[in-house]
Amino acid sequence: MSEIEIKNLTKIFEIKGHKVTALNDINLSIEKGDIFGIIGMSGAGKSTLVRSINYLEKPTNGTVYIDDVDLSLLSERELRIKRREIGMIFQNFNLLEQKNVLDNICFPLEIAGVKKKEARKRAKELLKTVNLTDKEKAYPSQLSGGQKQRVAIARALASKPNILLCDEATSALDPQTTDSILRLLKEINETLGITIIIITHQMSVVTQVCKNVAIIDNGNLAEVGSVDEIFENPSSDAARELLSGKEITYKPVESLNTKRKIRIVFKENSAYEPVISNMILKFKTPVNILKADTKNVGGKARGEMVLALPEEEGIAEDIIEYLKANGLAVSEISEEI
């Protein structure tokens, strides 16, 4: 079995007599050593899903297995001990404001009953890991957002977990800081072999570090697979919507907004060929480029382009065929970009 196995997970909240299904029959397997992204719009249920992995939310139905252990069979005490194997970081860092950096990192060890001297030693090592050795006596209020998240990461690693859950861990940070935190997470994954689960609403976070991704839409699992695959051939509407980059609100001018649009993805090999130029020369029909971008998907460059197809149906079909024949991933997008 995989390290994390989620089977038929359903969570129903009862709010003032109304039943709200936050998660509906989710099945997921997450392998050891993976960096697994869970992406969805806000309110899609992804936070509830990640909280089910350490049983902060108890599922209404279904089972969560961590290393073959069914969490629902554990007593409160056993569950608390199990949680020490699962670190967690948050959007708002959730540091203890009245404790300094070192004491914050020692905190999970204090809870676990580790001797103070030993805890301090471990905390100092962790400060090195997250590159904050000069801040051990500082209080959270004296730190920047990125520094706070580094402390939170060190704290989450203190009890030597096998799994690290990141709940929108970069959503409150600026792009540069996000990059550095993501790099740190990747480094931790590679050097310590910790399985990392990243909850986010930003596709850029997923494409930058995740190996696999699950797309949650309205409480349902819309799509799951490797980031490469989904970036090239998104099969669900939710995935296409997230990929079209709504976070950078971009809308084409009215006059350019033709009926049919396609999104094409260039892989490294096809990026050397001047496919678009050749296509225009071949069909003698100009196309409008509505959007063009390159993204770093799991360390590899991926070109992404949105084209407006010519009105004539025949030529439009031929163009799609031509692009596919040239090894590009092509998908049609219906709504506005």
């Binding site: 902060l56 949680r83 020490r84 699962i86 708002n92 204090e110 009890s159």
Partner: peptide, 25 residues
């Protein structure tokens, strides 16, 4: 902040630990 309490729970803190080591502090 309820987030801090949630963080303590995620670390495996018991309710008594949360009261004496988180809330009162």
């Amino acid at each position: 902040d309820t987030g801090v309490i949630e963080a303590a729970k995620a670390m495996g803190a018991s309710n008594l630990q949360i009261i004496f080591k988180v809330l009162l502090v």
